[in-house]
Write a protein that binds this DNA or RNA. Structure first.
Lengths: 112, 112
DNA sequence: CCAATTTATGCGTGTATGCTCATAACAGCA
DNA sequence: TGCTGTTATGAGCATACACGCATAAATTGG
């Protein structure tokens, strides 16, 4: 594949960066992975992650605005779900690179 | 594609996050895109980006440790190159999502 | 319509880090 | 071996933001 559209404009670079920043926090990535398994409400997320309600509220809102989550009101509470394979695909690509790096480091070790 | 390996361990989540964090800064992403086009030395990168030498040195080192860049000493100076399509692939995936979001926002606008 | 539960938000704090300047370590060349 | 140009590193500053607490706003059930 060729370089990213020859050279992304500063605006596009910023857009990419903002998106990647969402994934650059373990907390948010965890939320995405959890909600990928099964939809949950905030009470359940608090139970699982231990985060405060206010923190979760903000993170979930951010992820929803990016289109990575969808929150549908289910009576009183809101049920959050993550559909689409984008994050999975991204992680799969990165995982390959992580493995390569570890293997490279292994090679560079003196004795075996 | 199925969810990310059922549920990534905290360590794996951190590894993913650290990687995405590298891409979460426009400066670094710009470096990757520039060096994807053609290898450059630091002097050229200073000229193009306007960043300080110390800053570039640190960023380049970070990206090299992640395996996203390779710096080969060319006599006195070091020539930096970015090979591999990982970043391109990641950006391509994200770009689709960005487009989707903008289209969605367009739909939600009141009158046209 | 009121009380209870859920979600959103203002505020403060601590930490991480982007970025610069100054300087040290270092490589190549006279 | 000094001298010059290149890269790495220590220190400091400014800012972003993750996260919690307290509280307001909103929605639902009685």
């Amino acid at each position: 594949m060729a370089p990213v559209g020859s050279l992304p404009s500063p605006e596009l670079l910023q857009a990419y960066s903002r998106f990647f920043r969402l994934l650059s926090e373990p907390a948010r990535l965890q939320l995405l992975c959890l909600l990928r398994q099964e939809p949950m409400d905030v009470a359940a997320l608090i139970a699982v992650t231990g985060f405060s309600q206010s923190h979760l509220s903000r993170q979930l809102t951010q992820l929803e605005q990016a289109g990575l989550l969808r929150g549908e009101r289910q009576g009183a509470r809101t049920l959050w779900r993550a559909d689409g394979t984008l994050v999975d695909d991204l992680c799969a690509l990165v995982q390959v690179r992580l493995r390569q790096r570890l293997e490279a480091q292994l090679q560079e070790l003196p004795s075996s």
